[in-house]
Design a protein around this nucleic acid. Structure first.
Lengths: 143, 143
DNA sequence: CTAGGTGCAAAAGGTTTGCGGTTAA
DNA sequence: TTAACCGCAAACCTTTTGCACCTAG
């Protein structure tokens, strides 16, 4: 894997054929999400994108994020009341909200456990997705 | 007006010993949640409470809901961006958001499955709670 | 040419806060 | 009496919307 900061080709590729234009704004928004996967809010994305594109507007960042969500390139995560957070990790996973630091971390959950969770639903409940959110604290390993 | 609102002994009982006063407003807010468990928003709770207590304010409803959440008598559920919803079901369960109707339904999940989900966490992740939210549609059983 | 994107500013929710007045322990 | 609580309104934060301008196909 090339440690390149130009993940924008990735977006072009992913968007190819969807009829959605890989505009500079969308590519930068996407690359910001990819390069630091700390579940930023729209406002935080806005601040980071501005370093590369000072004239971008917050409304455009919202538009780009919404587009990426529609394309299933990005997931929205709601951990708290307040701002929605954005996650570019498409692999099935859960989130862990560390109440001490305020951070939200990705947690891998084995697929067979996710399947078991879904199988607990009554037969006529057809789930398209399942979001799992833990709240707690991450202990210092040295303790 | 005589303070003889003690129609919800349930709440009084539950609050007894917590040091938190079972005020008429809190009791009515709680009884509204109990009597129709459809995960209303604060605004919806406000509208329902007003029928019994026309002078209550929205801010007071927010305060009461917040107090009930702090007392662990009510859970907050965030299914969508937009208003937080409130759930008086304390039994461990998941939520299913029906995208067709907009309703949010309680779903029982066997404890051993919840335990399995939690056991998928790395050892130093200490979870205090886990929220599970499905999104999908509930099929008509006659189909 | 025209459909789709962008930037800006204003508006629209949803929630919190500050303050004066009230009530229960 | 005093700390907790209520009602009201304004403030606040996040997100959406309307509109003028621009650009790619």
């Amino acid at each position: 894997m090339t440690p390149s900061y130009h993940n924008s080709d990735n977006l072009s590729q992913r968007l190819a054929g969807t009829g959605i234009r890989p505009t500079p704004q969308r590519e930068i928004v996407y690359s910001v999400l990819i390069s630091k996967r700390d579940h930023p809010t729209a406002d935080e994305v806005f601040a980071r994108v501005k370093h590369q594109m000072p004239n971008i507007s917050l409304a455009t960042v919202y538009n780009c994020l919404e587009t990426l969500v529609q394309c299933h390139l990005v997931r929205q995560v709601n951990v708290e009341r307040g701002a929605t957070r954005y996650c570019p990790n498409l692999h099935p996973h859960a989130h862990f909200h560390d109440e001490a630091t305020g951070e939200t971390l990705d947690v891998e959950i084995p697929q067979h456990i996710l399947d078991q969770v879904s199988s607990a639903l009554p037969a006529h409940f057809k789930a398209k997705s399942v979001d799992i959110l833990f709240r707690g604290v991450v202990e210092n390993k040295s303790l």
